[in-house]
């Protein structure tokens, strides 16, 4: 039972980290390697909030806002000029990752940081004690996923976003401001990454290089999932679950590779749609 909770909560963590990357991949058709850095920014936002003695819940909103602002800046200054060269955006966003991580290192140093958690303690469910925060995190992940799904399915904005995913040129021809759609999506993606970082802070150690392993896992999951939120949920559950099982029954160091290796193999054998 604990294992089951471990799997679903870990899948929730993966989902909330990957969802921003998936949105950006679906609509801008680029792989944003600065996603990990946005996550780090969100974590450090909560660190700052703790230092200022702010409420941890407020810190989440601050992280979201900082992420969105950063995304806006990056989209305008770096991504827009190279929109026509998708492979180069991989490089440019990696450069951004270097710059952001170095800026954080310069200011905060390389050591681990501490941030206050909104919820501490555990709940008891039918004789089983489990971390309350991890369960709340899972609920938040489900809520974010549901919210994005509802927006995509029912609103005008979601309709436009889906149109851009399917055929950007046609959407442009129909008078949709695809530039704006790309801009908004990227801001949102960055905001979600930052929010994910803030949410993960109580569970992980906060330091400037914390983003890379999350980035790599999220990158793999998004490529396996394609552009569907449903597939992303399934992928995080299956691959994240495999990782939890390998880590607990096998070797924890190799367990960290489960998602990467399984994704590469799945990508090789999946028939292209």
């Amino acid at each position: 039972m604990t294992q089951f909770l471990d799997i679903v909560t870990f899948a929730g963590e993966l989902f909330i980290v990957a969802i921003g990357l998936l949105l950006v991949f679906g609509i801008l058709k680029i792989i944003n390697l600065a996603h990990g850095a946005f996550l780090v920014v969100g974590s450090y936002a909560t660190v700052v909030a703790t230092r200022l003695n702010w409420d941890p819940w407020l810190a989440l909103l601050v992280a979201l806002a900082v992420g969105i602002a950063l995304g806006a800046l990056v989209e305008r200054s770096v991504l827009r000029p190279i929109a026509a060269r998708p492979l180069d955006t991989i490089l440019a966003t990696w450069g951004l990752n270097i710059v952001i991580v170095q800026l954080i290192t310069l200011y905060f140093g390389r050591q681990m940081q501490f941030a206050k958690s909104a919820i501490t303690g555990a709940v008891t469910l039918g004789g089983l004690t489990y971390s309350e925060y991890r369960l709340i995190l899972l609920l938040i992940a489900v809520a974010v996923g549901a919210m994005v799904t509802v927006v995509m399915r029912t609103t005008q904005m979601g309709l436009i976003a889906r149109a851009v995913i399917m055929n950007e040129e046609l959407a442009q021809g129909l008078g949709i401001n695809t530039r704006l759609v790309r801009f908004v999506t990227f801001c949102l993606g960055a905001g979600l990454a930052s929010l994910a970082g803030a949410l993960l802070t109580p569970l992980v150690s906060v330091h400037p290089l914390m983003g890379v392993p999350w980035l790599i896992n999220a990158f793999m999951l998004v490529l396996v999932a394609g552009v569907s939120l449903g597939s992303l949920a399934v992928a995080t559950l299956l691959l994240g679950g495999a990782q939890v099982l390998v880590s607990s029954y096998g070797n924890p160091v190799l367990g960290g590779l489960t998602i990467v290796i399984l994704s590469v193999v799945i990508l090789r054998f999946r028939t292209p749609a």
Binding site: V78, P81, I82, D88, L91, A92, G95, L96, I98, V99, Q102, L103, L106
Partner: peptide, 12 residues
């Protein structure tokens, strides 16, 4: 940091 910045400028 400088290398990262120059890298972005060069790529773009």
């Amino acid at each position: 940091l400088l290398v990262g910045l120059i890298f972005i400028v060069v790529v773009v």
